[in-house]
Design a protein around this nucleic acid. Structure first.
Lengths: 225, 225
DNA sequence: GCAAATTAATGATTTATTCAAG
DNA sequence: CTTGAATAAATCATTAATTTGC
């Protein structure tokens, strides 16, 4: 197994031309916060993931380039050791069910819920859920498209009036769903320290047409519709 | 100079079919949480139909679509009353300075800091900062591109070996910056309730070449304007 | 001068691409 | 080669400028 470095982007930075990275020295914190020191490892060792790698990863990028420049590179290392989320079969099962049920772009609240639910089957974060839907939606769509094309080329040059049935149907559905724009939410995204007081989120109503039972897998099963 | 209009696309949108918002009812919360009641207004304040333009602004949106569908619409209304962020001149000044300094894709920590700083000049959230950079970067880029094209067409068909100086320079810089992929962070994005314990963020080193003084505007005593 | 009507800017979301882990 | 992660491009929606008829 080849070990991967993270994005060690900052390594090649040395050669960076940067017309004139003029000054240097201090940065953000000048007037901002004493945050200087906190940015080491986040802690929370949480070992033992499904495939708990070895704690490899982090010795590498823990180094801070230059203590004085707080702004750049405040790296928070994934404490556990794993890099990317590796969904368990159960998690995938649930996600796919939700997808089949019609969910496409869950809002932050939904994501929260789903994450919490899926957390029972293994480590998972909100962003994983978010990305999963993004990717799945996109890739299903492109799969459809490919299939459609293939069908077309297969059937030679038939008048395109025929509904290709299988594919087309899903396509249509998907399309209807994604046509209308929906609003998402940042929720506490990127947590803004200062002015959270004012406005909250704006949330949304993601899929009005979705009606599946959210976690039918759960034994709890109190509520149906 | 010819002025171009943008997309007035939304005018014809009234005819939107919206095939069939079929079923309805239940959703997520089945086994999840009792969050039942908090979800008031479904959509963002201000009716947002395209043609609702002439209507009064806001009395409308208070209506709740359907009390039983918990999943959709967990809205927390912007308490202030306004919908979208409207940057103050000072905020813009700072943001542009950062941008000119080379910042392009601030990581969550940076965003936090910037937000905090800018919070002194008015209401602002992390996402606003995030979006600002996204948009500004994109639009600067497209401005450059347009300018470049214009330059080309203006100079007729000169051998493209000439460095167009002004434009090109910026372009090159921008390009260099954006070429290498950088990693962002979700931070607590979309807040995942359940398993936040584990891994934190992954952060990154956005602009390695950037070294500008972060908030020179208010070194502590006098602010710019 | 002034609102209504347009148009231009730009904040906010979604979709398409790209990168890289496994 | 599949797919999680991240960024860029495209799009939508709302607000500010600006124009226009009075």
């Amino acid at each position: 197994m080849r070990l991967h470095r993270f994005h060690v982007a900052y390594l090649d930075k040395a050669a960076s031309p940067s017309s004139s990275p003029p000054s240097i020295s201090q940065s953000l914190s000048s007037s901002a916060i004493p945050l200087a020191l906190q940015y080491l490892r986040p802690l929370a060792p949480k070992i033992s993931f499904p495939d708990a790698r070895k704690m490899v990863v982090f010795p590498e990028f823990a180094r801070v380039r230059n203590a004085s420049r707080l702004l750049n590179c405040t790296v928070q290392v994934p404490t556990g050791g794993t890099t990317r989320w590796n969904p368990s079969p159960d998690q995938i099962k649930v996600l796919e069910m939700l997808y089949r049920g019609g969910m496409r772009t869950p809002n932050s609240f939904q994501i929260e819920q789903i994450t919490e639910e899926l957390g029972k089957y293994g480590r998972i974060e909100g962003k994983n859920v978010f990305y999963w839907f993004q990717n799945h939606k996109a890739r299903e769509r492109q799969k459809q498209k490919r299939a459609a094309l293939l069908t077309l080329s297969t059937t030679s040059c038939l008048p395109p009036a025929e509904t290709k049935d299988g594919v087309e149907k899903e396509e249509a559905c998907e399309d209807a769903l994604s046509r209308k724009r929906r609003c998402r939410t940042w929720g506490d995204v990127h947590g803004d320290a200062a002015t959270t007081t004012t406005a909250e989120v704006v949330a949304d109503c993601t899929d009005d047409d979705v009606t599946l039972e959210l976690f039918p897998l759960r034994p709890d099963q109190g509520k149906a519709n």
